[in-house]
């Protein structure tokens, strides 16, 4: 493994002080399930590893009014057992159950999964469909909010500045729409555990009178350089009545939203076909009572 110095700050102020010094190349260590793989492969060469996993107060899933707030250091394993998520952000919990494997879920954090910005980042897809945002803080103690759909720029690249840390994830109020909101999550991997997605899809529909679609948010992963929102699919769905023909039409236009590549896991063509299939599966799930 590359050589580096190590510090485990107890407070966020200490973290911000260290990362506010750009002359010393740093890497933030949260769960480490990506970082340590990269350190071992000599892919990154930080001078100092800042272990933020010791910070208290950044691991929680709680209700704040009608919103859900999640601390950035919350382990993915906490998502799998959260009753709150099960009730109010079902697709986020579903995606967490299919996230890597239990050993990884016990270490990986939500903030780390987002900051790593893999095009296949499993947690990002449902969060985008839920309209979630991250809150960050920088070394000048300036906070900002970034919608998660705007956070990603390219593979492993985010909008985050070098001196900026994700502190919280906020899922907007969905409760007021209870009953009218329907959602579905679909992931295709090569096997059940430890499978990096070939395609993943999350859909949240706001329904009126059962089947009329007031609003739609559709997100896909692993089919572009970053997790994306499928605006063409959304436009087909919005202000229409959910039906089999509408589902067929949505599946066709998803091809205009995605830009997949061929890699070791699947060809671009297969990803196109599977994107259509997963859009259909997700919408069918919703139509059948999701």
């Amino acid at each position: 493994m590359v050589e580096f110095d190590y510090i485990a700050p107890k407070t966020m102020d200490e973290v911000l002080e260290v990362i506010g010094k750009p002359e010393r190349k740093n890497s933030l260590l949260a769960g480490g399930t990506n970082l340590i793989v990269n350190l071992r492969a000599n892919k990154i060469k930080p001078e100092i590893v800042v272990d933020i996993s010791r910070l208290a107060d950044f691991s929680y899933i709680r209700k704040d009014g009608e919103k859900i707030k999640i601390g950035s250091l919350t382990n993915i394993s906490e998502f799998t057992t959260s009753e709150l998520l099960n009730h109010q952000a079902k697709i986020l919990r579903e995606s967490s159950i299919q996230f890597a494997n239990p050993l990884i879920r016990n270490k990986a954090t939500i903030g780390g999964n987002l900051a790593d910005a893999s095009p296949a980042a499993d947690a990002a897809i449902p969060l985008i469909a839920l309209g979630a945002k991250v809150e960050t803080i920088d070394s000048n103690h300036k906070k900002r909010e970034i919608p998660i759909e705007e956070l990603f720029l390219a593979p492993n690249k985010t909008l985050l500045k070098k001196d900026e840390v994700i502190t919280e994830i906020e899922i907007p109020s969905l409760n007021g729409n209870n009953g009218n909101l329907k959602s579905a999550y679909e992931k295709l991997g090569l096997r059940n555990a430890m499978a990096i997605s070939i395609v993943s899809v999350a859909i949240v529909l706001k329904l009126k009178d059962g089947k009329y679609i007031d609003d739609a948010k559709v997100a896909l992963g692993s089919i572009a350089p970053k997790p994306i929102r499928a605006r063409n699919v959304e436009n087909v769905l919005k202000e229409e009545t959910l039906s089999q023909s509408l589902i067929e039409k949505s599946a066709e236009v998803v091809l205009d939203d995605i830009n997949p590549i061929t890699d070791v896991r699947a060809s671009a063509d297969y990803r196109r076909m599977m994107s259509k299939a997963l859009i259909k599966n997700a919408l069918n799930k919703i139509m059948l009572g999701g």
């Binding site: 480490g32 399930t33 793989v37 494997n101 050993l103």
Partner: peptide, 23 residues
């Protein structure tokens, strides 16, 4: 050495984790 195989699993404060991906 990448978190795929679990041969390095230990229990850390009650949770099973990959010791190869833990400093």
């Amino acid at each position: 050495g990448q978190g795929d195989c679990g041969a390095c699993a230990v229990i850390l404060d009650g949770k099973a984790v990959n010791s190869c991906l833990t400093l």
